[in-house]
Design a protein around this nucleic acid. Structure first.
Lengths: 339, 339
DNA sequence: GTCACGAACTAGAGCGCTCTAGTCACCATC
DNA sequence: GATGGTGACTAGAGCGCTCTAGTTCGTGAC
């Protein structure tokens, strides 16, 4: 910076002004400084600038590395953080690197807010964290109100699923349950609500899960059922689970959707591939990301002058999901009852 | 820090000593300082500590968000960076955030070295970057020597594939090509070498790609072939491509491995699921990560006293892949020639 | 008793920025 | 010609650490 200032024949403060893009430098000087910087291959040190300023304008994100939907969310977060003049600091969660450890590094970076994708931490722990700085839990609801929440209306999603299947004439509609995963309880609730709305429907909950593996296991349980009790349609916890289910069912010689209709959840990229063509409930990653950044930016920049650890708990943002009908669901037929 | 020092009744410098874990504090004081820090919920500011010290001990990583194998690599990188007392700074690449932009933020963070997972930047650009600081390209070979390389022996991997299939009696073995992806050229070369080694083998290269989508398309091309020319075995660019291929082939009523044997590449988690049981060539994510960190740490901490932009170009590290035989390959039979 | 030495601890400059409180020149106003 | 205002620029303290060059003290050797 020193060198750039010297080369451009100005003070260091002026260089700072130019690089922060604030008012206080003439157009001519601005160009001269930028030219000098280019020649010297100078680039402001983000560590130092964050240290110097009162605000770091930095948002920390924990995410599961290699998780496809988290990837979609990150893309949206990057875009909207950029638009709101925030920087993102990523901290990955892996089998050997806990979410708590990931959060710890974000705190040490002095992020102004923290975004947790699909958090698996206990509510109490989240509340404790949220007492220090604004926290948004994405995908996973957190009761209490201290923690910001941006999520899809999971219950509504499963209601959509069930309605869709009921509309196709299905009566025995099973849920491949997500267990203790973020959002699973809500989806179970949505499933039950929708099923009980119509007395013709028969509930059945099979243990499912997050990955194809668990979908495949659920399929084996499904295949063990007798013809009379076997569901004619299945709503899966998510797309990957649905895909595993379909795979095994097909390998057993049954047809999807001929013998059993299947609905997923998420609408991951793979669900839209022609050879998969999974009917599913779409979570809008783009909007989830946008709302997350907005929630945080509002609190940080905006209204509450206490800098975010404010008394005004942000209202949870719940985004409506959307049914995406593809080729894995079809009207119920006699064949659905075939062995 | 001020407050912690006051509470523990020591100087700020002592607090620094304790938190850096260096010698120069008695056990009693150390405990007193840590206790004070705990009570005040103090945590050293990483930005400030990096600023203060001459070294940042920070490694920057660019990766594709949501990419499963990159996730595996990150896990290994986290572990080994930690062991070598380095911190990782992640910078995600998305469709709307280029690799160049990702690198730019890493440079502004003053990372000491840069790790690029499956880089798609041009060689010239990488060379330019490597002139400034140590760079390791993981998965993708870079000619020239200025850029460090840690990768799997892709060519050997495809030779293993072909050998395995030849050993099962297959003669018409096709490659589902990876196009311009990192490593694809090497794998193509390995395939050709192995095929030409034995005159009985008939080469055939079908356009493939990185995702299930492209594997599925390749399968459609495969199905259009007449019975006499149709390969009895297929070596795919990677597991996802293989999985898409298998999926479509099965939906068309053919059997894997009965009608066609399929080999993948990578050994992603999914390949090991019982209902997938894909025979594949394993890339050792754990070792790739370990070698990457070692390469960088050696250069940064070790021998060359110039701090890494040294004259000694690091030799590329090439890791041998390993054949993992599962249920998607079987001996060639008459049925392999069936329409 | 004194000297050397090491272990425990401290003072204070410095890292590369930001940002407040200026200075200075220039112009318009009355 | 004094006054005020404005845009362009600068000086210098401060952000929260690290790290070098100390100081202080207790101990063992002679």
């Amino acid at each position: 910076m020193e060198h750039v200032a010297a080369r451009a024949g100005v003070s260091r403060a002026l260089v700072s002004i130019v690089f922060r893009g604030v008012a206080g430098a003439s157009e001519a000087t601005r160009e001269r400084v930028l030219a000098a910087a280019r020649e010297l291959d100078y680039r402001p040190d983000t560590r130092a600038s964050r240290l110097g300023s009162s605000r770091t304008r930095t948002l920390g994100v924990t995410f599961a590395v290699g998780h496809a939907f988290h990837g979609d969310l990150l893309e949206s977060l990057y875009t909207h953080a950029d638009a709101a003049a925030y920087e993102l600091v990523l901290s990955g969660v892996t089998p050997s690197r806990s979410e708590a450890a990931a959060v710890e590094t974000l705190l040490a970076e002095r992020c102004e807010g923290i975004i947790l994708l699909g958090s698996s931490q206990e509510t109490a722990q989240l509340e404790r964290l949220a007492a220090h700085l604004p926290v948004v839990s994405v995908l996973r609801p957190v009761p209490g109100g201290g923690v910001g929440v941006v999520r899809t209306d999971d219950a509504a999603g499963l209601r959509l699923s069930v309605e869709h299947l009921r509309g196709l004439g299905h009566r025995r509609v099973a849920l491949l349950d997500g267990g203790r995963t973020a959002g699973a309880a809500e989806r179970r609730r949505g499933y039950r609500t929708a099923m009980r709305r119509s007395p013709a429907l028969t509930e059945m909950i099979l243990p499912g899960g997050v990955t194809e593996l668990e979908g495949a296991e659920a399929a084996r349980a499904f295949l063990r059922l007798g013809a009379r009790e076997r569901p004619t349609a299945v709503a899966a916890f998510n797309d990957r689970c649905a895909i595993g289910f379909v795979d095994v069912v097909r390998q057993a010689g049954l047809h999807v959707p001929g013998d059993v209709s299947v609905v997923g959840f998420d609408d991951i990229t793979e669900a839209g591939y022609p050879h998969v063509a999974l009917t599913t409930v779409r979570q809008d990653a783009e909007r989830l990301g946008a709302e997350t950044v907005r929630t945080l930016a509002d609190r940080l920049d905006g209204g509450s002058p206490d800098g975010g650890s404010g008394t005004t708990p942000p209202a949870p943002v719940v985004i409506e999901p959307e049914m995406v009908v593809r080729a894995s669901t079809a009207p119920a037929t006699r064949r659905g009852v075939r062995s």
